[in-house]
Amino acid sequence: MLVDSRLILGLENGQDNEGNPIRKTKSFNNVKPTVTDQELTTIATVLAPLQEWDLVSVDRTNIHSLM
């Protein structure tokens, strides 16, 4: 049974000295499990302009109860 969910924004701001992308993540915990993936994507696009870095990915982590 799905008991909890987390929204994770993947952010990028340029490159390091070796040319590798500089990436960070920002997590939002306690997302209602009933929220759809499309709704989370919409929320992420609304939050993106409020971030200092550029949005490059949107992920969702779900927590399921096995017992």
Rank of each mutant, 00 (worst) to 15 (best):
V58G: 07
T61M: 05
L2C: 15
E52W: 00
T45V: 00
S65T: 11
K26S: 05
G19F: 00
F28M: 07
K26L: 08
L40W: 03
L40E: 03
W53K: 01
E12K: 07
V56D: 10
F28Q: 08
N30Q: 13
E18K: 13
T36Q: 14
R23H: 00
L66P: 08
N13G: 11
H64G: 09
S27H: 13
V31F: 09
L11Q: 05
A44D: 05
M1S: 15
D59H: 11
E18I: 06
L55V: 01
G19P: 00
V3S: 12
L7M: 11
W53F: 04
N30A: 12
P33V: 13
L9A: 14
N17F: 01
L50G: 09
Q15V: 06
S57G: 09
I22V: 14
R6W: 05
T42Q: 02
Q51Y: 11
N62F: 10
H64F: 12
S5M: 15
I43A: 08
T36F: 14
S57M: 03
L50D: 09
R60H: 02
S27I: 12
M67N: 07
Q38T: 12
R6Q: 11
R23E: 00
I63Q: 08
A44V: 07
P21R: 01
E39D: 15
T41S: 02
R6L: 06
A44T: 04
I63K: 10
M67G: 10
T34H: 10
D16V: 08
D4W: 04
N20T: 12
L66V: 14
I43L: 10
E18R: 09
G19H: 00
T41R: 06
A48K: 05
I22S: 02
V35N: 03
L47M: 12
V31E: 08
P33M: 12
K32E: 14
D37M: 06
R60C: 02
S57D: 09
A48F: 06
R60F: 02
V58K: 05
E39M: 15
N29I: 08
H64N: 12
D59C: 12
T36H: 15
D54I: 00
T61G: 03
P49H: 06
T45D: 00
L11W: 04
S27G: 14
L55H: 02
N62P: 07
S27D: 14
L9E: 11
T41L: 05
T36L: 15
R23A: 00
V46H: 00
R6M: 10
L47G: 11
